[in-house]
Computed example of a mutant assay.
Amino acid sequence: MKRIELTPAWFSQCPRYLSVKGFCLAAGLINRQKHIETLIDQGVLPSRRIGRYLMVDMHRLMLMLPSHDRKDAFAD
């Protein structure tokens, strides 16, 4: 499956929330759905429960990604 680069442009075309399965499909991780669910349970991936559905919060995920405009915190 083709790897998707998670750029701000990609996020702007993405819905605010994706189901876990939808996130796995979009990210090319369909065989890793249990791992993604574990990351959500651990609080590593931002999520929100909407009714009975567990959704990945794509806006919060985008804000967590490093920005190319900011200096790297580990740079000398």
Rank of each mutant, 00 (worst) to 15 (best):
residue 1 M to Q: 12
residue 1 M to S: 12
residue 2 K to N: 09
residue 2 K to G: 05
residue 2 K to M: 07
residue 2 K to D: 11
residue 3 R to T: 13
residue 3 R to N: 07
residue 4 I to Q: 14
residue 4 I to W: 04
residue 5 E to N: 13
residue 5 E to L: 11
residue 5 E to H: 08
residue 6 L to N: 02
residue 6 L to S: 02
residue 7 T to C: 00
residue 10 W to E: 04
residue 11 F to S: 04
residue 11 F to E: 04
residue 12 S to R: 14
residue 12 S to V: 00
residue 14 C to N: 08
residue 15 P to R: 05
residue 16 R to M: 04
residue 16 R to T: 14
residue 17 Y to T: 03
residue 18 L to N: 02
residue 20 V to G: 01
residue 20 V to T: 15
residue 20 V to S: 02
residue 20 V to P: 00
residue 20 V to E: 00
residue 21 K to T: 06
residue 21 K to N: 04
residue 21 K to W: 02
residue 22 G to L: 00
residue 22 G to F: 01
residue 23 F to L: 01
residue 23 F to K: 00
residue 23 F to P: 00
residue 25 L to F: 12
residue 27 A to V: 07
residue 28 G to T: 10
residue 29 L to M: 15
residue 29 L to H: 06
residue 30 I to A: 15
residue 30 I to P: 00
residue 33 Q to D: 04
residue 33 Q to M: 11
residue 34 K to I: 08
residue 35 H to P: 02
residue 36 I to A: 01
residue 36 I to C: 05
residue 37 E to P: 02
residue 37 E to S: 14
residue 37 E to C: 08
residue 41 D to Y: 06
residue 42 Q to R: 15
residue 42 Q to D: 13
residue 43 G to H: 05
residue 44 V to R: 11
residue 44 V to L: 14
residue 47 S to C: 13
residue 47 S to A: 15
residue 48 R to F: 06
residue 48 R to T: 13
residue 49 R to L: 15
residue 49 R to S: 10
residue 50 I to E: 12
residue 51 G to W: 06
residue 51 G to F: 05
residue 54 L to D: 03
residue 54 L to K: 14
residue 54 L to P: 01
residue 55 M to K: 14
residue 56 V to K: 00
residue 56 V to Y: 01
residue 58 M to F: 03
residue 58 M to I: 05
residue 59 H to A: 12
residue 59 H to E: 14
residue 60 R to I: 04
residue 61 L to N: 03
residue 63 L to W: 09
residue 63 L to Y: 06
residue 64 M to D: 11
residue 64 M to A: 14
residue 65 L to V: 04
residue 66 P to V: 09
residue 67 S to T: 15
residue 67 S to W: 06
residue 67 S to F: 06
residue 70 R to P: 00
residue 70 R to V: 10
residue 71 K to Q: 12
residue 72 D to P: 01
residue 73 A to W: 12
residue 75 A to G: 05
residue 75 A to T: 08
residue 76 D to L: 09
